[in-house]
Amino acid sequence: MNGPLLEVRSLTVSYGGDSVAVDGVDLVVREGEVCLVLGANGAGKTSLLRGIGGFASSEPGRVRGGRVTFAGADVTGLSPRAMARRGLVLVPEEAKVFASLTVDENLRAVPMSGGRAARRALVDEVTAMFPFIAERLSLPAGQLSGGERQLLGIARSLLLKPRLLMVDEASLGLSPIAVEMVFDMLRSVVASWGTTLLVVEQNVRAAQSISDNAYVLETGSVVLSGPAGDVLGSERVRQTYLGLEM
């Protein structure tokens, strides 16, 4: 088994005041695996990803306690930009693309590393994975469908050559067909790039096929964790998230 790429120890995230959104979460993601975080609305899933990926100084959110280790280095409380440059990249839940910029400009806005030829090759490789991009290059990203926006967000993040890609609610607001499209894409990213994934999802059915390990969050704390099959097969998850009667 591979070593841990991301190690989170007793992470606490707060948005000011006394209340905490994430309360002492422990989480480990190993190199090459797909890790799923489940939880109801307000359980702290997004705050957990933001706490790992860093808050901008203009935001109210702060890491109040705990430690985040990424690729062997302590990265607790670094800025989102510093995280992205280390290869820890977040595809956020709300706005994933710049709506007023064209598809092409969305890709060009990504500061890529490496020489000109290497950057060109990476852009070609990524756009080849997303056929719709070539057809919509000059369209404002705000006019894309929800699924296309999600895919463009993933394409943008791939240009940063992520070692760990965190995807927040990829299926939110998408049609079943679009959800399938997005998860097919994530599957092929894992298969062909070997990218490690940390995925937050409410759509358990969509996520279970690609996940190795799973964590269940409730009110900011982990209440259940283990191999995805065991966690998703547990009575608690089946009742709460799949709506199955026992």
Partner: peptide, 24 residues
């Protein structure tokens, strides 16, 4: 220009820009 496009990106959404590696 790439810098100009990044300025427009940061103008629209500074947090997403920072998450995308732009030096806001």
């Amino acid at each position: 220009s790439t810098v100009g496009i990044r300025m427009r990106a940061a103008a629209e959404n500074p947090v997403l820009s920072a998450q995308g590696g732009i030096a806001v």
